[in-house]
Amino acid sequence: MENKIEVRQFNFYYGDFQALIDLNVPIRANQITALIGPSGCGKSTFLRSLNRMNDTISIARAEGEVLLDGKNIYDADVDVVDLRHRVGMVFQRPNPFPQSIYNNVAFGPRVLGTAKGSSLDDVVVESLKGAALWEEVQDKLYEPAQALNPGQQQRLCIARAIAVQPEVILMDEPCSALDPVATLRVEDLMRQLSKNYTIVIVTHNMQQAARASDWTGFFWLGRLVEFGKTGDLFTNPQEELTESYITGRQG
């Protein structure tokens, strides 16, 4: 199976503190990879290394390679704006811009100049459909996004991310602010999206990882303890630490 992203010997530091240690992670194309582990284990830091969102932190420093289609995204000649266009992100708290629903989705195509006028309208409609939100918002495209409920807002953020047709979508605990019904809707949506996109999701919720992902990586204190097919990892973990975490004895 093809690896969309290949992380090799990756180390990450906040000043003197080493947050990620010697990571080697394969991210398979068009699959859902879940990252689990206790708070502070580095899984969110790892996720934000994949589209270099950590660049905004001045004391952060990365070593090693993150190969996207074989090309290290930390190379000097990589344009970080272009990278984030290819590797989109959905955040923990829904963060639609305080603008209309339409403008939120149109934001990406507008700044990248990929669509204008009626073709922009098409992109907005397609993205909202892709995020399973179209039915609910088609009559209020020009109303403020803040008026939507949190579950809808999160799907709007997904629509906003897919409007620029990224190759990879990173999701940082996308359901932690949502109720169970909205959570299931987002999981269904992830399943559909994985046909066209490679998805990496960080989650605190082990049931979610078990339900919704193809591959799971277990992080502990900045290290990747175990990585494997989700079914194998949850039913037959190779490491004692993994077993005690997923059974709730540890973490």
């Binding site: 589209n51 969102m53 905004t56 704006v81 272009d82 990278l83 984030r84 266009h85 290819r86 989109g88 992100m89 955040f91 708290r93 963060n95 639609p96 811009f97 305080p98 934001f107 990406g108 507008r110 700044v111 990248l112 953020c157 906003r160 991310a161 620029v164």
Partner: peptide, 19 residues
């Protein structure tokens, strides 16, 4: 969160500020 959201889509810093 708004700045992160815009940057994560591939907006430049200036586009993030302006839009």
């Amino acid at each position: 969160e708004y700045r992160d959201g815009a940057l994560a889509i591939g907006a430049t810093q200036w586009q993030t500020i302006w839009r």
